[in-house]
């Protein structure tokens, strides 16, 4: 079985909106996948299904062999420990320093303090923020904050890094810096990356697998794709 598999997935919200319609998708280990689409196309819903923020209405979603439909609320943490999640709004805790924000994700495992320290520092080094350890999020630029949240996402060595519009709030230059960090994680650590975005430039430049969603239906799934089909 692939690392991530969606089989005939439907998602209909309680308000009657059908966000996803018969989606089939499989992603294998080490891949880098862009999920693109306009606002309201259903790409965010797709991403949310992967970390069990939402449950599919019909069909099966498997992540790392776990069936999302059968995952009870109290057991969700077992899935999330295999994932790293990066959000558009960073989701950092404002009253904690960079170091604390990253170490926070490790404390739940009950590791020894020096082990936490070692791994936290390693993750912060990987995103290039070693000189900002004691800074608070409010003292950092948007790009730096996003890199902190990436460090937090990879500190537990996840198999999959899920990014929900990570560059949505950043200017083009900073966006590229963040993308370089994510690309490096994919190449050096072999982490599978799934990233929802509507940033045309980034998609065109990275030349990765592209899954396009329109009105809840997967309309395109190409390797080394661009944001728009060439020739149209």
């Amino acid at each position: 079985m692939q690392l991530i598999e969606l089989k005939n997935v439907y998602k209909r919200y309680n308000n009657g909106v059908t966000a996803l319609c018969d989606v089939n998708l499989s992603i294998s280990k080490g891949e880098f996948v862009f999920v693109i689409g306009d606002s309201g196309s259903g790409k965010s819903t797709l991403i949310k299904l992967l970390y069990r923020q939402e449950k599919p209405t019909r069909g099966d979603v498997f992540v790392g062999g776990i069936n999302m439909s059968k995952l009870r609320n109290g057991r969700v943490y077992k899935l999330r420990r295999k994932l790293g999640i990066v959000f558009q709004d960073y989701k950092l805790l404002p009253k904690m320093t960079v170091y604390e924000n990253v170490a926070f994700a490790l404390e739940i495992y009950g590791l020894r303090r020096d082990e936490i320290r070692r791994r936290t520092l390693k993750a912060i080094e990987q995103v290039g923020l070693k000189d900002k350890l004691r800074s608070y999020p409010s003292e950092l630029s948007g790009g730096e904050q996003q890199r902190v949240s990436i460090a937090r996402a990879i500190v537990n060595n996840p198999k999959v890094l899920i990014c929900d519009e990570p560059t949505g709030n950043l200017d083009p230059k900073t966006s590229m810096e963040v993308m370089e960090v994510i690309d490096r994680i994919n190449k050096e650590l072999g982490t599978t990356i799934i990233m929802a975005t509507h940033d045309e430039k980034i998609v065109n430049r990275m030349k990765k697998r592209v899954v396009q969603i329109e009105k809840g239906i997967v309309t395109r799934d190409v390797l080394k794709g661009k944001y728009k089909d060439e020739g149209i």
Binding site: G74, K78, I85, K91, L93, F104, N156
Partner: peptide
């Protein structure tokens, strides 16, 4: 609530 949400997202169990 934000703190709790983030804890959930990084994989903390409910008991934790």
């Amino acid at each position: 609530s934000r703190e709790i949400e983030i804890r959930r997202l990084v994989g903390a169990s409910n008991a934790f």
